[in-house]
Simulated scan of single mutants.
Amino acid sequence: MGLSALLALANCDETLTSSVVPQPRPAASAPEPNAYVPPSAASQDLARFYQRVERDLVTRGLLRTDGGGPDTPYDASDLERNFETIAFYSEYPDHAVTATAYTTEGQLSRWSGPVRVQAEFAPTVPPEMRAQDTAQVEAFTARLARLTDHPISVVSRKANFHVFFAGKDDSAYVVSRMKQLIPGIDQPVLDLIANPRANIDCFVIASPTNLSPHRFVRAVVLIRAELPDLMRRSCIHEEMAQGLGLSNDSPAARPSIFNDDDEFALLTSHDEKLLTMLYDPRLEPGVTVENARPVVRIIARELMGQPL
């Protein structure tokens, strides 16, 4: 009723001043689709829970940020073994978290074309957190590009590697975006996105094409906005690296973030070498673990400075 009255009044004013050239009115700017919305009480409770978890882990000497040291030695044989486990197999062999029906166990999967990274934020992520997380994603993207010598860069449009930060209240927004970004995404994945299990802080979905099941063309990382700073940075490091092709975890990998024991929060010297190995041109996407072993052995020894 009020809107109709305002429109009628505007039309009347134009009629009364028809001898005067009407001045253009500035168009009202549409609100951004992910404009900030304060989180709910439940989301704030979850944030406090994760703060307690982070404090507990750090108190126990976990979530290390030193990248490894004298207490975590490793040699070329360790690197070779861990690379085989982490790069040739999936953390989700039952495909509970996947966007493809192809089975690629025992074969190398990675990107062949340029990786274009963009951070995206759901409505409940505060502006100051958006700025901080964007800076972290940009810095880590540059690091990944150096380690892999692969074209990996941050973009503002036409991304194919999205890093999402979203809170407990943002399920509908994120599910809608996932449907746009990954056509044909499996329903179990959407269910997981809408209602993440309590033990899942973050995860990545990397998908290839039907014709090239070992060459990734799209990836989406999802990170809980309720996580405190160190746990959020840890998610950035692990999930972005996994989205490049280091898809598995191994309890034997140390020092490494590809280990579910939470000892290390950030990419280690060991993990840097895994990424370099993954994108070595002597290894091709789709190569089997058996055929790759002789080459992996050579690369591991080169990186460690050990004789063949």
Rank of each mutant, 00 (worst) to 15 (best):
L9E: 13
R224L: 11
L192K: 10
S153M: 13
S40A: 09
L181G: 00
R52Y: 00
E138D: 11
V296D: 02
E84S: 12
T276V: 01
A96Q: 07
P31I: 00
N82D: 14
P39W: 03
K168E: 09
L9A: 14
L181D: 01
P33L: 12
H214C: 08
P73K: 08
L308F: 14
K273A: 14
T124C: 07
E84F: 04
N195T: 13
I257L: 06
H237Y: 13
A265S: 14
E263G: 00
A41Y: 02
E14R: 15
V21P: 00
P38V: 08
I236T: 12
L16S: 02
A42H: 07
V37T: 14
I185D: 04
P31M: 01
S29G: 01
D149S: 15
V189I: 01
A139M: 08
G67I: 06
R116G: 01
V58K: 06
D45I: 00
I223Q: 06
P151V: 06
S112C: 09
P39A: 00
T104H: 09
L79K: 13
M277Q: 08
F83S: 00
F164S: 04
L308C: 04
V115N: 02
A142K: 14
W111F: 15
F140Q: 14
P213R: 13
Y36V: 05
I182W: 04
I86T: 11
A292R: 01
V221T: 11
V21D: 03
A131F: 02
A8G: 15
E290V: 14
Q51E: 14
N291R: 12
P251V: 03
S43T: 12
N248C: 05
A41I: 06
L230N: 03
A27H: 05
E238F: 02
V137T: 10
D229P: 04
Y92F: 15
F165R: 13
E54D: 10
G243H: 07
S256Q: 03
L192I: 01
G286H: 11
Y102K: 12
D149M: 12
A10V: 11
D45A: 15
V163N: 10
E120G: 01
D260Y: 05
R110I: 00
D271K: 05
A241I: 05
G69E: 07
R130L: 07
G167P: 03
G184N: 12
E226I: 09
L108R: 03
D56R: 10
V125M: 08
A219I: 13
V296R: 10
I236R: 07
A219F: 13
L57W: 09
S40W: 10
A252R: 10
L3M: 09
L278M: 08
E239C: 00
T17Q: 11
Q107C: 14
P183W: 03
Q180K: 06
D201Y: 12
A265D: 12
S4I: 05
V174N: 04
G184I: 11
S212K: 15
H237L: 05
Q51N: 08
K273F: 03
T17F: 15
D71M: 09
R25N: 08
V221W: 03
P70H: 02
Q51M: 07
Y102T: 08
A131V: 10
F88E: 06
S19L: 09
V295K: 08
A30W: 04
P26Q: 10
K158P: 01
L46Y: 03
V21C: 05
I257A: 05
A300W: 00
T134R: 15
R224M: 07
V37W: 02
L57P: 02
R293S: 10
L266P: 05
V289F: 00
V154R: 15
F216P: 08
